[in-house]
Design a protein around this nucleic acid. Structure first.
Lengths: 151, 151
DNA sequence: CACGCTTTGACCTATCCTGACCTTTGTGTA
DNA sequence: TACACAAAGGTCAGGATAGGTCAAAGCGTG
């Protein structure tokens, strides 16, 4: 596990403790994890993007901050939101993140999540030409999420 | 016995010791056996395929790994039987037939069957070039069946 | 010798980490 | 009030690390 994962983990814990809103200080966090400040942006961009169910606000200058908000809502809404956010194509790690979010919100059972992961795993998509993988992953993900939603 | 067999043996031993989950470092393993990294992929592809009862996950970049998972023995027979019958590629109606057979034998719950059907439905696979649909369907079907039958 | 399994290497893709440079905002001072 | 300055945070391209793909060459055996 690299530093990025540690930072993401820390942010998730903060969100947990603080009831869905984490207010962070970029440079302070960077110092705490012995990394450059821009790595915090990297972590937020790759793990706390809107498609993954988070909102991010920030402010520069004196008293600046980065606020990560876990977007609230009931299971169905979250799942529909996730499906709508998928778009034409999706890369593997975004797909993984969406699934673990839905799972964390109890909008998706661990069993269904595992099935979906199996369905979009690299070995499953082996025969898809690489320039189409993103599209195919998106297609499968949407269909299976829809199915899982309707129990 | 060639190097591939030695590597396969080593992975099996690791699986034995580690209770069915081996986490490997491709380049490290390659160095250890004095071969090129891609030979590790060859070994995994030829000896740890879904047909043989293994799941494989991996991650690139810093902290990358290859994880080989041996599916538990008790559920293995049935799953292997179904999966081995699938082959390189499969058309939509044969896939449906396999699913309804398994369902009829009570080997597959209706929920899981529906998930799989969603995953290989035409809308899920719309972005796959038609000359590859059969192969892709087979890939997804195998992975998902392995997951569904072995939980 | 033909066939199939093995081995190799060139090239590709994904993920993470870093640093140089830029923009926004609050505040103290002339 | 205006302005300079310091204190945040933002962007982006590049480098490092690690696994993936594919086709061609090697090799052993019927």
């Amino acid at each position: 596990m690299g530093i990025s994962d540690l930072i993401a983990c820390f942010i998730r814990e903060t969100l947990e403790k603080a009831d869905g809103v984490a207010e962070l200080q970029r440079s302070q966090l960077a110092e705490q994890f012995h990394c450059v400040p821009s790595q915090i942006n990297y972590v937020i961009a790759t793990r706390f993007s809107p498609e993954r169910g988070y909102l991010v606000e920030s402010r520069r200058g004196e008293g600046g901050y980065i606020r990560v908000i876990r977007v609230p809502g009931d299971c169905k809404t979250l799942a529909m939101h996730a499906i709508n956010g998928i778009g034409e194509k999706i890369d593997a790690s975004s797909a993984r993140a969406i699934l673990s979010n839905l799972q964390a919100e109890n909008a998706l059972s661990p069993e269904y999540a595992r099935m979906i992961r199996a369905g979009i795993s690299p070995s499953a998509l082996h025969a898809v030409p690489s320039d189409r993988k993103g599209q195919v992953r998106a297609g499968i993900l949407k269909q299976m999420l829809l199915q899982a939603l309707c129990n």
